[in-house]
Design a protein around this nucleic acid. Structure first.
Length: 250
DNA sequence: GCGACAG
DNA sequence: ATCTTGTCGC
């Protein structure tokens, strides 16, 4: 009982000090050159998210969409747990082992063209946010779309959909505040690895036509929440069963 | 020095 | 993230 998802990845940090040291090495491993795949090259896009119970239990979800039609092509969930607490700046160490497990459960499209994270990429104190970690771990083009800015400065983008302004930290541009819906709060896009900011924003706009957040994030969020609710119901009479399982789409 | 800070 | 009711509007 109580096996941590952290045990699934070799040398995964268990303390804050180890995690910070790991991030300082990670920033070198990110691929930040080149425009990466543009709208013409991207056929499949994955979204990932995690829903938490109050006891360390969690459900991670991965969903693959057709980038053109936004149809669901594949999905998988991982039921597990984490021992790493939420620490600002260290979110990756709490979420990613479970996210990797969910991605391994994708049976039809295990290697999507791009992965979209719910959070930041290089817009991070050590330039090592969630999307940078996931990009390096998977080797896939990866970027982040966050809902709230922290530690950054930006001007309010224009009112219309598609308007954007630079997201900066200490004068350095680390992303964009991007308006996906007219008159609605912008989202905050930053690259993780193997994709440029222009293409990340273009893809974000393609994925967020009717809602503020990209469809990838919305689908993954829904799937993770549903998985958590179902797991709660199932484990009510059968404590501890179903841990560490991956459920592919049938 | 202390607190705030993606989810 | 999660805890939570109704309510306004397309």
């Amino acid at each position: 009982m109580g096996e941590s998802t952290s045990a699934e990845l070799p040398d995964w940090p268990r303390t804050e000090a180890e995690a910070v040291a790991a991030q300082e090495r990670l920033r070198e491993a990110a691929d930040l050159v080149g425009p990466g795949p543009g709208p013409e090259q991207v056929r499949t896009v994955a979204g990932v998210d995690v829903a938490y119970a109050d006891d360390g239990g969690l459900v991670a979800a991965a969903v693959v969409l057709d980038a053109a039609t936004l149809t669901v092509l594949d999905e998988a969930v991982h039921v597990g747990r984490t021992d790493f607490p939420y620490v600002p700046g260290l979110l990756a160490f709490r979420e990613l082992p479970s996210v990797m497990a969910a991605l391994r459960g994708l049976s039809r499209h295990p290697r999507p063209d791009v992965v979209v994270c719910d959070g930041y990429g290089v817009a991070h104190p050590r330039r090592a946010g969630l999307a940078v970690h996931l990009g390096v771990l998977t080797g896939l083009p990866c970027f982040g779309v966050a809902k709230t800015p922290f530690l950054f400065e930006y001007a309010q983008p224009g009112h219309e959909r598609g308007a954007w302004t630079p997201l900066t930290i200490g004068g350095e541009q680390v992303g964009r505040a991007l308006r996906t819906r007219a008159g609605v709060k912008p989202v905050f896009v930053s690259v993780g690895s193997r994709i440029g900011l222009d293409n990340a924003c273009a893809l974000t706009l393609r994925l967020a036509r009717t809602y503020r957040q990209p469809e990838t994030t919305r689908r993954a969020d829904r799937l993770a929440r549903r998985g958590l609710a179902e797991h709660r119901g199932r484990s009510a009479g059968r404590e501890g069963s179903g841990e560490g399982k991956v459920t592919p789409l049938s």
